[in-house]
């Protein structure tokens, strides 16, 4: 944890800082994403949509956040 107590995390391979105590849903909203339209993996483990609001973001977390794009 850094001196200002913000959390150091990675989202889709990019480094970010997050406020302590926030849930994954809070993180998604902060990123401008609709939690209903994305799939989230935390430290290589799938996070069920039903638990996004309960799981707390922790220092060092690594997130993959995906959605649907055009494809064949």
């Amino acid at each position: 944890m850094s001196l200002d107590e913000s959390l150091s995390i990675r989202v889709n391979g990019e480094h970010r800082r997050a406020a302590p105590g926030i849930s994954i849903t809070d993180l998604l909203v902060e990123l401008g994403l609709d939690p209903l339209r994305v799939g989230v993996e935390r430290n290589l483990e799938l996070v069920p949509k039903s638990t996004l609001a309960e799981v707390q973001v922790e220092d060092g977390d690594d997130y993959e956040i995906v959605h649907f794009v055009g494809g064949g």
Binding site: N12, I65, V66, F68, V69
Partner: peptide, 17 residues
């Protein structure tokens, strides 16, 4: 059919499918 890809973190306001 649709593909599954990382969301655009840098510009989430971009239109989506």
């Amino acid at each position: 059919t649709v593909a599954v890809r990382r969301v655009n973190i840098s510009d989430p306001s971009q239109p989506v499918l």
